[in-house]
Amino acid sequence: MPLLRNAWGHFRTINHHKWEVLKNCFRIGLYRQGLLHDLSKYSPTEFRTGIRYYKGTQSPNGVERLATGVSPAWLHHKGRNKHHFEYWVDYDLKDPNRMIGCRMPYRYVAEMFCDRVAACKVYRGKDYRDSCPWEYFRKMEHTPLLHEKTREELIFLLKLLRDEGEKAAFDYLRGEVRRRRRERDYF
């Protein structure tokens, strides 16, 4: 019975998360990304981990990593979803013994922002505040795996959300996505 309960709970959690991201992406004009967001979570590799490590208050992938030292589900997920900065990690051409973050296309930075807001809303529930995504990001703010320009763009959006609220952040982001698309600075 616990596995069935976990399967149902995990299914509801990822559907809730996808719905929140979809709403956020639609608010800023990223319709295709909203519809396709995190489809890999329904794959056997990721869904089985979601069932086994489901808690309802945090990512099962993180729970699996703490329990076993590695999460094949996370490796699968980040390798297929361009809104995760870890997708954009590569060897440094000047020092092949070092990994670095590559600059993310802005449309994926925007989706990453939408994803972080949605994840905080889902996992924090009634305790969600507009500062939660910023507080969560601070733990990894200085990772060398995040390109400096991507870091600047994400920090700007998270602080805008924290300081001026959701409406201001999404209004700005919708305008910025449109501007970059028009100026072909969207890559």
Rank of each mutant, 00 (worst) to 15 (best):
D163W: 01
K167R: 14
M140A: 11
D171L: 07
C132A: 15
L145I: 06
E148A: 15
E135P: 00
E166R: 12
A168R: 14
R162M: 10
L146A: 10
D163L: 10
K149I: 15
W134A: 05
K139L: 13
E166T: 10
T150N: 03
E164H: 15
R151Y: 04
A168Q: 11
L161H: 04
L160G: 00
E153P: 01
P144G: 06
Y136N: 05
E135K: 08
L158Q: 02
C132S: 15
R162W: 09
D130R: 09
C132L: 05
L158F: 06
E164R: 13
L161S: 00
T150F: 13
K159W: 02
R138D: 05
K139I: 03
T143Q: 05
D130L: 02
Y136I: 11
T150K: 11
R138V: 12
L157S: 03
D163F: 04
D171F: 01
W134C: 01
D130H: 09
F170P: 04
H142Q: 15
F170N: 02
D163A: 05
D130Q: 11
W134M: 06
D171P: 11
E153I: 03
G165F: 03
G165V: 10
D171A: 10
E141S: 13
L160W: 06
P133T: 00
L154Q: 09
G165R: 06
L157N: 04
L160F: 09
K159S: 00
K139G: 09
T143R: 07
